[in-house]
Design a protein around this nucleic acid. Sequence first.
DNA 1: CGAGGTATTGACACACATCAATAGTTGTGG
DNA 2: CCACAACTATTGATGTGTGTCAATACCTCG
Lengths: 214, 214
Amino acid sequence: MASYSRDKVIRHEGDQPDVFMLHSGWVASSGSFDDGSRQVVKVHLPGDLMGAPSMGYTAAADTLTALTDVTISKIAPEGIARLFRESPRLAMIMFLLAQEERIILMERLMSVGRRRGAQRLSAFLLHIYDRLCLLDPDWPLSFELPLTLDQIADVLGLHAVHVSRTFSRLEQQGLIHRDHKRIDLINLDELRKQAGFPRRTLMRNAAWLPPSAP
Amino acid sequence: MASYSRDKVIRHEGDQPDVFMLHSGWVASSGSFDDGSRQVVKVHLPGDLMGAPSMGYTAAADTLTALTDVTISKIAPEGIARLFRESPRLAMIMFLLAQEERIILMERLMSVGRRRGAQRLSAFLLHIYDRLCLLDPDWPLSFELPLTLDQIADVLGLHAVHVSRTFSRLEQQGLIHRDHKRIDLINLDELRKQAGFPRRTLMRNAAWLPPSAP
DNA sequence: CGAGGTATTGACACACATCAATAGTTGTGG
DNA sequence: CCACAACTATTGATGTGTGTCAATACCTCG
């Protein structure tokens, strides 16, 4: 179990492709270009497996940066391999979770490729909100977003100045309310309409999943 | 084994989340918005498993469209589940392939989020070229790109008119040469520099992979 | 040969970027 | 607990990459 304070780099792209479990705090997974621009490809919340995409490569493709103070632990690939040997059911569930992550990336790509700033921001806020609801079913319509405008801009593929204006516009339209880092979602329906994505429902306990006792 | 001719929709988002194997031809996986705009999230080449990201959901998230005449076959999820029960090694390899696809999506997101049109186009052409080289190690510096400008635009998150101008500029700069659908890569190094991505090397036969005989 | 799809080119509009200045917030040390 | 410094957010002015509309030329295939 290791701790990192806000803004510390947990592992840099090009480093050894370790896999981590995030116990507390938020972490950004991002890639960067030579000119210094960065794109955040995933915001990790507690309970997330981090770094798994790079595990088949010789070097990590993404940089993991602590967005808040965090605690993490390293996962040995041997442990995952053992799980694949001993529990086909859990292995298949891990496989399906990786596929879910692909869907999330596909939605992010659609959003960044085809939607305007306000719609991207709505989609991002809803994505975070939906994840918090998943962790805690009676989460209120409000949350702390511990990212700076620069970091949000790197998530949305915009620039901080424009994110500031876009936030103001969403607030002025009565869709959200802001108080420092806290976001209140005022008009959830309209936000969802802006985001442009349907709510996807997971197939729990598909008949074809391998049984628990192999 | 089923056949589809060019531009035919193999399965639409919202349909039953089937999984397919692509035997011949090219297929686009895309998502669409209410206003009619579309984003292609993956161009499938022969040998690709298609539709896997949606297999944990009750409805498919992406639309599969034939870019050329294609032949495909449906994969039963029970077959994949059986593979997970009977061969931990192959299961783990499928897991790692899904993770590789996440990396590819991350790169696409970085490209669309942070790079200009010309750089996105360079990255896309190189991505296709690298895949063709993977299928056939002595592939020449040239290939047929069976997409219309509209479809390429939907890949890049641009519009057809702008893709046309961007293509012309790449050609004028001497980076590529075009003859109808055929693309010749003239200056591979400069294209790679534009794209902004390192070449990633896969870790073959990692020590921790489960053995073939369980 | 004709028709529908596809590509090119030009003119103009707009979302977002960039630069810059100010104000507000947070953290730190005395 | 205050005071200062560093970071962060806001706002304005202006530039530019890409979108949009439209007209023409070009391929492809029946």
